[in-house]
Write a protein that binds this DNA or RNA. Structure first.
Lengths: 337, 337
DNA sequence: CCTACTTGGTAAAGCGGTTAACTTAAGGAT
DNA sequence: ATCCTTAAGTTAACCGCTTTACCAAGTAGG
């Protein structure tokens, strides 16, 4: 079933059918239009997107590029990422585009994807700053980065105030009288959002005159079970902390579980603050106090930028950061009380 | 940059370039082949997939269709689904295909997707039996269903022994001396895997002469927080149970949390068994005993069938069920001890 | 020496659409 | 009666690639 067949049945040329398909009504009478439309409905004909893309040079395809972490740890498994992917999918669908999902280890891998599919735009999740120039140089279509910390680069990035998030995290704990702090975080070596949070955190400590050494950092993967391990390590390690700041909620959940397993009660024996403010925070026991970010906001902003660039055929530069706050719940003890 | 340009630079026809691109070596000398390849490398040329698809009538596109549950509950958020999607993505990538991801509310929505994109094959996740005939009638490309219980339908389904899973779940609890059982489950009204598990569960009870009434079923969404609620309901409800069977791990996690919040200790005051055997089971406290299924196995099997159908251009019919077992840990108390 | 086959290639049609340029008939203005 | 405009199409080229049919030159066989 193709456009020629429809044209034949309607007794018109393919051009006319194409015109009604594309809403160029000026060229076709109401009568023929109705006739063609009824035939289309009747036959269930759907134009071939590929053929259309070929001539229009647009694909209605949006690439969603997520880091491939290896066979045994998937990016999706962090609820935060799952939520954001789901939200992006909704916006892509709502804009009548199609989502091509690709996990990549090395960002260079996406070039064939993007250049041979003529993808109209792409979202990149969790790319590090030093990978940005290469990606930029390789690609000339609209792209939006989410959670890439790369000030000065000519990109659109949608994120949160990471530095401030880390800062607030420490301030909050300090404000409750905590001075012996541990930080549980993924690697901070690469320049990125985590490093910014770390900087904010340590700056707040310094400002408050609280000693914070590298030994107070515990490195973890962003998985529940890796974090459980860390929770146990901290409990057994005798680091003499009163509070632990985690750089994501999933890690905080794990740490709390680890602590519990070693007999420590949160927040009585140890306070914990998370980062992300997942819906699940509300349902833990204790309810998790967490630095709040809003993935719905991120997905919406990111989509707005991407689709604006696509429809206006322009390249924007922006670095939008969602203002951040602490969602206070029950996992941090007030030492002044 | 297109094939014509490459042909020009190499001083050959486009047909020849096409031949080396497609490995039809018989038609081209080693010399010209080397020349063309070096030009391709040099220019970074990538053939346009759309144009190729148009003539070849294959797209190298695999659809991944997942249920759209609404704005506030995403399918991805269940770690089980996240894991399986990630695993499928890996196999699709490994086979050099591209993944088009689409959430759909009504299965009919995927028709335009599949027919206008000429998708080469598709995976359907979590489709109910009564939706199968319609999907089948609408689509004539290779598709593989995951976790669809639809015996008698002419489809490829990859799943587990759901009935036996439910059966084993009850048998396990009964074997430990439990006779007052509650079941926490999503809706069992529609014919599907959950219903099968339910049937197995109740049959095992009946066999053992244990009364199990509808009042012993607690309905939940497949989310952590919905399940926490149920845990609390059960704790307060005075249902006088000694054990709770959950139809997924994420639900079990929530239920345990709910119970704990009400002061019940697992497994001392209440036993809980899960279903899925997520990696996280190992890291809870208590470690969660769970009916074990293997998503890696599912993804592999599903891919094998799909790619076999695609390459052999045939339609298979199969209903492969992974054998199932109980992964015993610490969340069920032995009442005989 | 002539024919037949092989090697290495080319020309052109076609995949299913879109679109710029052209056509034709009718109506209105002068 | 003539010219201009407009409405409603049509024709044909083209998007980037694949593929079938065809061709020329070299080589082998008889």
């Amino acid at each position: 079933m193709n456009i020629r067949e429809i044209a034949q049945r309607a007794g018109v040329s393919t051009a006319t059918v194409s015109n009604v398909l594309n809403g160029k009504l000026s060229k076709v009478s109401d009568e023929t239009k109705a006739k063609i439309e009824s035939i289309i409905k009747e036959t269930g004909y759907k134009p071939n997107v590929m053929a259309r893309s070929l001539v229009k040079k647009e694909s209605r395809l949006i690439g969603l590029v997520v880091p491939y972490l290896g066979k045994d740890e998937d990016f999706f498994a962090n609820p935060y990422n799952a939520h954001i992917i789901a939200a992006l999918e909704r916006y892509i669908r709502a804009n009548d585009y199609y989502l091509m999902l690709r996990c990549v280890g090395d960002p260079r891998e996406i070039v064939p994807l993007l250049s041979s599919w003529n993808v109209d735009g792409a979202f990149f999740l969790g790319i590090y700053k030093d990978e940005v120039p290469e990606i930029r140089s390789l690609i000339d279509i609209p792209i939006v980065f989410l959670d890439t910390y790369a000030p000065g680069e000519e990109i659109v990035n949608i994120g949160i105030e990471d530095y401030r998030g880390g800062y607030l995290s420490a301030r909050y704990l300090i404000g409750k009288g905590h001075t012996k702090l541990a930080l549980v975080s993924p690697d901070i070596a690469s320049e990125g959002v985590i490093r910014e949070r770390y900087k904010g955190f340590t700056d707040a400590c310094r400002e408050a005159g609280i000693p914070f050494k590298n030994g107070n950092i515990y490195y973890t993967e962003s998985t529940y079970h890796s974090a459980v391990q860390i929770g146990q390590d901290i409990a057994f390690g005798g680091g003499d902390y009163t509070a632990i700041a985690c750089m994501s909620d999933i890690v905080a959940f794990g740490v709390i579980e680890g602590l519990k397993q070693c007999g420590l009660r949160v927040p009585y024996d140890m306070s914990v603050i998370g980062f992300d403010n997942l819906p699940d925070c509300e349902f833990m026991s204790p309810k998790l106090t967490s630095v709040a970010q809003d993935f719905e906001w991120k997905a919406r902003k990111a989509s707005e930028y991407l689709f604006k660039m696509i429809t206006d055929k322009c390249i924007l530069v922006a670095d939008e950061r969602q203002p951040i706050r602490v969602a206070e719940r029950q996992s941090v003890k007030n030492l002044y009380e």
